[in-house]
Amino acid sequence: MGSNSPPPGNLPPKPWERAGTTSGPAPFKPPSSGSTSDVVEASGTAKPGEIVPTADRNVTANSTTLARPVPPRPWQNYGTSYGGYGSNMYNSGYGSGIGGMYGGSGMYGGSMYNSGLGGPMGGYGMGMGGPYGNQDPNNPYGPPSSPPGFWMSFLRVMQGVVNFFGRISILIDQNTQAFHMFMTALLQLFDRSGMLYGELARFVLRILGIRTKTRKQQQLGPGELPAPAGQQYLEGPKAPSGAWDSVWGNDVKGSD
């Protein structure tokens, strides 16, 4: 292991070490001599191997000037409900045992493209090592995490099935609706084109000099007295039989 006995470094001097400092005195104590371990231990601040639990992180934050509230973290929003889930499933290979570590359906929360309304950039790299993420042949640490249990996989399958049928039914509903609208539009088109045909035909006949006398009766106003033979109108709007026959031709049958 070459790390324990590093040979004297023949490191070239840094460019800035050849130049003097350009600004005034710095507000630091002058650097101590000796190795870092000795310096830190001499200062009395050494605390080797301290593990930071994620639970009490806010307690220890003696923020001196941090006046603004800290944006919520993805795992604070989502992680709690997944707590037990995460800690007993995924963490066996990691040995850290923090609940909700990988719980986070909001892994992508705060899309990176939005200009960052506090959306944590860091949210991206979360959640490595899914249930099977540790089965790397090069992984020198620990066994792969155990596969999910029977009920977990069964419920996942059930969720998939329910999702599938839900999607199918939505699609069927939408197709039905679309077909209905299509048919309605088609019928309306036929209806209107028939009326257009009638109107045009009437126009053409008029030009050809063929008079359709029935039109005159149909144009009666509501309060107007009908023509002499108009007692049929006293019976109401019910048209006599054959009233439509006179529309097209000159077979005078109904009135007159």
């Binding site: 371990s37 601040t45 220890t60």
Partner: peptide
């Protein structure tokens, strides 16, 4: 803070309240 002559970290700095 880590050094190669120690198996564990030499010191932990905890004041930040976020990543």
């Amino acid at each position: 803070l880590w050094t190669l002559d120690r198996p564990a970290s030499l010191r932990t700095f905890r004041e930040h309240s976020y990543c």
